[in-house]
């Protein structure tokens, strides 16, 4: 009884705190950090769905994010689509990309899944770089239309509006993930991860679950990408680079693979940590080294992630 109470109460308490943060954090830079952290939290927690819960060695998750970024950017800027709609378009676009890569990957095993998903990301980046008439090439796209609600411009009020849109997206994405994970489908994913042969023997189609989990994990990642483009008003091929990939991966790892809230907590902590490091002179590049070292240490010392480690510290009676 106590277990479920604590587990249900903690996320709600965290949400309540996040909801009142803008009251205290009135400068736009602190709010900006929170917004970026929320976006990374969506990326990391959705990546965790395929990587952690289903055991698909997907290293192309940031590709889904990048597809969302460019879909929204091109829709809003080139075709004049309303930015709200453009953000949402990132979801189905990323889902289509996920289906395209999932179909060949579903039958593969082990290292080949890593290689193909990774190569897919490089391919999409090549596409973005080469089609510079549409995507702006290496320079990217700038001055993408910003969000409005009636007469209200979201550029006003020190990013207050963006803060709540980002938080709202994170909440909806998390509810969606919880719904998927707790459903019979979610349990079948764990079966595919932990006992592939047994799952197949019980009538679960391993390939179909893998395809579905990749598509499901892409939806909110793509929407987050759409929001990222509209919020920053920039789309750049950097999103496909190793820097973003390693940052998001470290959030999944440090937060705890296969936990629900771990990657979200890690995304918040790591965004602020890296931004703080970036503020120190000469640390702009070194912060990636710090994160890489942290990733290795967590894998070595706390393979379940820091959240699991914290859980171990909580007395059994409270768990």
């Amino acid at each position: 009884m106590k277990t479920s109470l604590l587990r249900a109460a903690l996320p709600l308490a965290a949400l309540a705190v996040l909801a009142v943060v803008p009251v205290f954090a009135i400068d736009s830079f602190t709010r900006h950090l929170f917004i970026i952290a929320f976006i990374y939290a969506i990326i990391a927690s959705n990546w965790n769905l395929s990587l952690g819960h289903c055991g698909v060695f997907n290293f192309g998750h940031l590709t889904f994010f990048g597809v969302g970024v460019y879909t929204a950017a091109i829709a809003a800027k080139t075709y004049g689509v309303d930015p709200w709609i453009a953000i949402l378009l990132g979801g189905p676009a990323a889902a289509v990309a996920a289906f395209l890569i999932a179909a060949p990957v579903a039958r593969l095993k082990g290292i080949y899944v890593v290689l193909v998903t990774f190569a897919f990301g490089q391919l999409v980046m090549q596409l973005v770089l080469s089609q510079s008439a549409t995507t702006g090439g290496a320079q990217g796209m700038v001055r993408i239309p910003y969000l409005r609600l009636g007469d209200y411009s979201f550029l006003k009020d020190y990013k207050l509006g963006y803060y709540y849109v980002a938080l709202g997206l994170l909440v909806v994405s998390t509810l969606f993930l919880k719904l998927v994970i707790d459903s019979p489908f979610g349990k079948s994913l764990k079966a595919v991860r932990d006992a592939e042969d047994y799952a197949a023997a019980r009538g679960i189609s391993v390939s179909r679950q893998r395809i579905l989990v990749l598509i499901l994990s892409a939806i909110f990642t793509g929407i987050a990408g759409g929001f990222y483009a509209i919020y920053l008003r920039v789309a750049s091929p950097d999103v496909f680079g190793f820097g973003t990939l390693s940052l998001a991966l470290s959030m999944v790892l440090i937060g705890g693979v296969g936990t629900t809230y771990g990657p979200i907590a890690a995304a918040l902590a790591l965004t602020f940590a890296t931004e703080a490091l970036a503020g120190i002179r000469g640390f702009e590049e070194a912060r990636f080294i710090v994160i890489a070292v942290a990733m290795i240490l967590v894998l070595r010392l706390a393979p379940g992630g820091l959240l699991r480690l914290l859980e171990l510290l909580v007395p059994k009676s409270l768990r």
């Binding site: 290293f59 082990g110 390693s246 590049e285 070194a286 994160i291 290795i296």
Partner: peptide, 22 residues
């Protein structure tokens, strides 16, 4: 091990690349 070593060697790649840049 397969997945973990992919991640640790990826981390090594980041360290080497950013280190070289510095």
């Amino acid at each position: 091990m397969l997945l973990i070593t992919v991640m640790t060697t990826l981390a090594a790649m980041i360290i080497l690349e950013k280190g070289a840049l510095m």
